[in-house]
Structure formats: C-alpha cells, structure tokens
Design a protein around this nucleic acid. Sequence first.
DNA 1: TCCGTCTTAATAATTTCTTAATAATTAGGT
DNA 2: ACCTAATTATTAAGAAATTATTAAGACGGA
Lengths: 246, 246
Amino acid sequence: MADIPIDSGKDIMSTGKRVLVVDDDAKTVELVQLYLKRDGYKVLIAYDGNEALHLAREAKPDLVVLDLMLPGVDGLEVCRQLREESDVPIIMLTARTTEADRLKGLDLGADDYVTKPFSPRELAARVRAVLRRIPEEVLMRGPEEVYYGKLAVNFRKHEATLAGTVLNLTPIEFKLLGILSREPDRVFSRAQLIEMAVGYDFDGFDRTVDVHIHNVRRKLDSVPGHSVQIKTVYGTGYKLALGVSN
Amino acid sequence: MADIPIDSGKDIMSTGKRVLVVDDDAKTVELVQLYLKRDGYKVLIAYDGNEALHLAREAKPDLVVLDLMLPGVDGLEVCRQLREESDVPIIMLTARTTEADRLKGLDLGADDYVTKPFSPRELAARVRAVLRRIPEEVLMRGPEEVYYGKLAVNFRKHEATLAGTVLNLTPIEFKLLGILSREPDRVFSRAQLIEMAVGYDFDGFDRTVDVHIHNVRRKLDSVPGHSVQIKTVYGTGYKLALGVSN
DNA sequence: TCCGTCTTAATAATTTCTTAATAATTAGGT
DNA sequence: ACCTAATTATTAAGAAATTATTAAGACGGA
C-alpha cells in the first residue's frame, strides 16, 4: 500500500492535540492508542464513564473517542454530560447500528460514528478528519510558492518575504496573505477569508478579519520600497493589489 | 437593522432547503442524510450519475453534495453537466484523489470539497457555510466579466474599467452598472434597479436611483473617448447603450 | 509564569446613502 | 409654437453604514 496516510497529517502532528479514549476493553484501548500516538496525538485513557467525565474536565481534550458500552455510567449518558459542559468533538464507537441508535447519538451531539469491529486505521483517519477543521489543502494545493510584485509566499517553508525581507507573520496572518496572494486582485469577503484562514466552524465575528488585515498591512508597510498592498473594497471585502510604491 | 440575528448557521433550518446527495455508498449516504436532516434540510438521494442529473433537473436542489467516484457517469462529468445547466452550488466529496483531480473539480465549478473520510458534522457545517454565502455571491455567478463597448465589468475583481481606466464605483453604483451591463439595451425600471442593487426590503423611495445613476454617469463621463452611456427612457427607467463618442 | 496570538470591544475616521430642494427637460394638448 | 404638468437632473448636507485603529482580556504553549 501507498503507506502515505490519506492526508499527510503532519501538520497536525506538531500540534500534539489531546485525544481522550474511553473504552473498558484494554485491548481495544491499547490498539487505538498505538495508532493515535503514531499520528502524533497525546492519548488520554479512561476505562469507565466516571473516569471519562473526570478526565475530560481536567485535561480538556481536543476530541473524545467514546465507546457506547461502558460499565457504570452509560456511554450515551457520558456523551450528554460532555455536551452540556463543552463542544468537544465526539466520535462514538458502537456495535449497535440501528437507525434509532444513530439518531440517539446524533441528538446527543456526536460528531461521527465508527461501528465495531473497526479497523484502527479507519478510526485514526476519522480522528484526523474531525480535527481537521481547516483543510490544509486550502493552503497546500497549488504551487509551493507564489509571487506578486516583490512579495513571495512560500507555503512549504510557511514563510513570506517582501523585497527580500522576511515578514514575521502569525499563522492566521500567513494564511490570509496566502489566500490573497493566490489570486491577486480578486476580492474576498470577510466570511470567505475567515472560513479559509480560521476554519469553517468559526463562530465569532466577521470583524476579526479587520484586525488581522490591519496587522498584515502594518508588517507589509514596515518594508520600504515596494508596492504590494491590501486594498479595501468598501462593502465587499479585501483584495491584494499593486499600488503606489511607498 | 439590528435585532435579526445575522445567521449563526442553524437558523437556516427553517428555510428547509433541498440538498441532493450523490454517492453510491449507502452507508455514507445514510450518515450524511442523518446530519443534514437534523439541520432541517430536505435530502434528496441519487446513487449514480444519471440519477443525479435527472433529480437535479426535476427537483432543482439548492445544493449538491457530489461524490467524485461514481458508477456510470463520472462525478466530474456530472459536475460539468450541472454547471452547464445551472448555478447550483456543489460540494465535492473526494476520496484520496490526486491534486490534479481536485483542481479539475474546482475548475469545473465546485464550490468546495471535502476529502474522505470526513466528519459528517464537518460536511454539515460546510453545507451551511456554502448556503450562507449564496446571497453575497449571487452576482458572482454567471460570467466573471462582461464587456460592452469599451466598458468591462469584472465581478471577481469587483472592478469596472472604461477604456482601460478604473472607475471608482461605490457598492451600489457597481451593482447598478453590473446589472445594466449584463443586458445592454434592456430597460430597467427604477423599482427593478432598486430591488436588485439595494435589496428587496428597501423602504426608501424610487428617486434614490436617480442620484446613483447620476453618479455613475459622472464617473463614466470622466473618461474621455468612449461611447458607453446610460440612457434615460422617459417614464420608464434606464438602460445601457452606445451613444456618440465624447 | 511569561510570551505570543487571537478575539473582542470601544471609539475614531472614512465612505457612502438618502433625502430634500431647486433647476432642467420632456410630452402632450391647444 | 407655446404652455403646463409630469418627469428627470443636479446639488449639497445630514444621516447611516462601513472600516481603521487601538488597547485590553483570554487562552494556550514553552
């Protein structure tokens, strides 16, 4: 097999997100743990419902893999409790596959299902899928580096330079400039920019973009003798353009 | 215009929009269906390309979720066909496809894509996101740029040029000129123009258009050596026409 | 804890929209 | 041609909407 995992996941690795695995079967847990660790996640383990709830409150994991069949507090109950306390994504492990069961899980806020018996590979892929809120493809597709005026944006190095000077951009700033650079002159709405740079599930406020754009502009302007600028299109959004040299 | 919530996703529920899901894998379809239904959409299902095209023509869905790997007619082909017939937004489901495949899909007019395996919750969120920005992109659909005489209106750049000179138009002015340019020589009433350029719920009075038209004319006239003009049709409205060069 | 980043909120600055008043033009009847 | 009523053009000012800027708090990671 192509031994390159479906989505390279390497970006996620570095983030070291925490995944809480809840299952009373030690063997299952071990197997899952192995695969998740290989993907670079930190794995927390709970063998029953109470432990799960406790750990979830303590460690605030980024995702919970939850078996429905648990000793003590039932899996569905755990799910409901978790939902009351946070928005942490939940992947349910279940042997039962009736429509009713699925619906129940959905109503309780599960993000995805994996039915037992499952392949740990599949589970790992689903974990990546749930945690992958911003498709890295958005930034990684297309050429490795794009140029516009004296601006160069290198996506492999994750680095932008203007007239040879390295711009010290934060992650969001880099994504914004990357998006704009890919299609200079095209206008992007704030909603589009937010979605592509922050994530489709961002539930904040459009105007956050303004601040990021402002900061990118500030950094662009700190480099003298170029003409790349982010233009405001009143009532619509922003676009990258060449203006008067500064 | 305050207290109407700006649409935090799930408000769309009440609209009951129709989503066509095209995939040959019954399990995938079922899962997607569950999540979309929970969000209040009416879900139509097709298991192959022909069925999909048929249903799309029949039911005119508001959005299509389209798997690329289909038996019979290929997903890309379905995408292309759909695009020829309508502007319905398309979200593509791609398994591990090559870069080339994805770009192809986007070139064919897909609005977004999700790679398998995906979290159904993510898909639901994307559906909301795409449907949310339809109104703002309504002008973007159709041709990216239209020409009339020496006038060019580019919707992607949100920029109009006359004889190569950029016209500095306000949002409403741009929309007005865009509407007129799409169908030169056709007369539009003030009510039509107001509705299309300002909004369905404008509660002001018709004559406001006159001022905007006046301003567009002024900006057109500031460019010498062309012949594009907005003509007044007494008692009826305005239209775009070619007149004597100025 | 310290540091960098993100988000939000408040306020300032800017641009655009609408209205209203007046002038100019048109159409139609005489 | 002339007169009149209706329609449109022009202008400027105040209102409204959008964007810029700044700073403070939240949050997570070294």
